[in-house]
Design a protein around this nucleic acid. Structure first.
Lengths: 350, 350
DNA sequence: AACACTAATGCAAGCGCTTACATAGCATCA
DNA sequence: TGATGCTATGTAAGCGCTTGCATTAGTGTT
């Protein structure tokens, strides 16, 4: 007797159930097109043999992989980790599997990753932020692979997206800062190159300043890569200025946590000596002392929503409108009123 | 003239280069087996046509997907996110793509995920911790899919693994705690069911107690799921005891951060009124006030190492020995000497 | 009873690639 | 110079599944 160690194929199931492979295939993919009788028989055979469809063959014949690719800057950033987790959960629910790759914030790596994922058969891809070479969108379009942009929302962009208005959110936060009487504002931004979220947030700050008739050129800004250490260093840099800012607005909570550390290192009290704000409202924001005033972003909802929308697109849904998620101000202790006279600056001094 | 919109195939490349498909295939997969001349010609054709191998076809013919699956509890836990990030980077370097799924700490979900990933053609899988139904290991072995266990290391386990000795690490930390004079020890553990890392850490604490001739039964322990809030609640619970502990040892930094919050809520000073320890040394640990005394775990190295080892296995390498990574004590301010007389307990009181 | 129609199933042609085996060309060696 | 080995290339047989089309059986209709 021959040992049949190889995994069973459709053929084996068909033989055992006494039907053709076509019927077995249909039984598995469109059960309603098969009679009750045969279905039961086939399913028993499947069960008995422990049959699992061969992925490659299925992909080849069906031209679908039920796989979605995601390209994110890095999972080390809690906001992406959280969003991705939610994304994966929802995909799983819908029978899709998640393919992950990361760029470490290097825009030029992204193009390669997109190709790799598409070559791997991703039925659709999730991208972070709008800003990237048009060639990438072209490629995706040519390959007929739907792409969804997340963590960003803007009416002006053609690409469907799900996210929030980074600019408006930061504008709101800045208004709050201004309302507290701050006029000398320092900014620690993430690196804006190839990162439209960071760019938009910066714009939001400027918007608010101009609304108040203030000059955005007065902003003191430092750009730095993601990381607590970097936040601390940037903070020290800002505070070393002859006229140090009374508030330091950070592009994200991690930088803000770093700034907080920097302040401690300098022996400054927050918010008494200097105020600090963040963005994202990750757990860190409520853990640190004092708690961070920040912008709450619904990362999990975004992940879930992204999965739903992307699956819809992959399954032939019309591109539909981009989806905007609400953000909200999260007031905590790190932002306090500006010290000294409420508007210490002379309107038009040098 | 007919529009040829479809993506080019091997055939197209072969025609254009004036060679057979076999040669093109070899050119792509084993360039050294092809003459310089043809190689150049073929590559030009590839370039010109913008050819990308069809994934499904390749998988089907080669029986390899160059895809590795990872099943982790959740990406929301920074230690896994970080490890996974490193894992992915290293895989990418080696031409592999990462397939991710998560169990949300539900052991029974894992079996299904393993099957799903294998069905998807994962060439190998990464698992967290040793403890799981033997049927899963059997299945993997039968399917001939190598599996590597990470975040755990134990000489006694057959399955190859990469990680550290959770038990020994916690023993060391506990020794330090005891050396500070603490005798009433409270423990906030992660849920131990299906989580051998948590179990091992608990054992480590008991080991150290017994070494000192203390009774492990005196430990007061609370189990709680991952999360800051949960840590805070558990802490309050422990401190509500008639004889509250002088130190609370937590199964991980997140729970410890929660405990810290709990202490603040109770108006207790750390470490003056009560000491707290963590495990993992994630960024959080140094951000909180006071900094957490914890165990430093090399999550990134583990991720990198796991990728290297798993690829080696997938490519036919012999199972080899498990890899143990070093951990170290990270002393910060959250652990201080026990207050009051150095050994306040009567040796044998009730 | 003949016909039209539907539902259930089978047949067989791919899908695009890899690879064992066959072949051809050429240098080497006795 | 013929036998011997290489190396470079071509031939063609799958890999396991899906699906358009053909076939058969069953149900009404007139």
């Amino acid at each position: 007797m021959v040992q049949r160690q190889a995994t069973p194929t459709l053929d084996d199931v068909a033989k055992r159930a006494g039907v053709s492979t076509a019927t077995v295939s249909r039984c598995l993919n469109m059960p309603e097109r098969v009679s009750q009788d045969t279905r039961v028989r086939v399913m028993q055979a499947v069960e008995h043999l422990g049959y699992t469809p061969n992925f490659g063959a299925r992909v080849m014949a069906a031209k679908r992989t039920f796989t979605i690719g995601a390209i994110i800057p890095t999972m080390e950033n809690a906001i992406f980790a959280r969003g991705l987790q939610a994304f994966q959960e929802e995909l799983h629910l819908r029978g899709y599997t998640l393919l992950v790759s990361s760029t470490s914030y290097q825009p030029d790596v992204e193009a390669e990753q997109v190709r790799a994922l598409v070559a791997r058969g991703a039925d659709g891809v999730l991208l972070i932020g709008h800003e990237r070479d048009a060639a990438i969108y072209d490629y995706l379009a040519r390959q007929n692979v739907p792409a969804l942009v997340a963590w960003a929302f803007s009416k002006d962009q053609a690409q469907p997206s799900i996210g929030f208005d980074n600019r408006a959110a930061m504008r709101t936060l800045t208004q709050e800062v201004l309302a507290q009487g701050h006029r000398r504002i320092g900014v620690i931004s993430a690196v804006t190159k190839g990162n439209d979220r960071a760019t938009q947030r910066l714009c939001g700050i400027r918007d608010a300043l101009m609304q108040q008739g203030l000059d955005p050129a007065d902003l003191v800004m430092v750009q730095t890569p993601y990381g607590i250490e970097n936040g601390a260093t940037a903070f020290e840099q800002l505070l070393a200025a002859p006229q140090p800012p009374s508030v330091v607005m950070c592009g994200n909570d991690v930088l803000a946590a770093g700034a907080l550390q920097g302040a401690r290192g300098l022996g400054l009290l927050v918010p008494d000596d200097v105020s600090i704000t963040g963005f994202d409202d990750i757990e860190l924001a409520q853990i640190v002392t004092p708690g961070l005033t920040t912008v709450r972003v619904p990362h999990r909802e975004m992940g879930h929503g992204a999965a739903r929308e992307l699956v819809r697109l992959v399954e032939g849904g019309a591109p539909g409108a981009s989806i905007e998620l609400p953000v909200s101000l999260q007031r905590r202790a790190s932002l306090g009123p500006a010290k000294g006279p409420r508007f210490p600056e002379r309107p038009d001094a040098a």
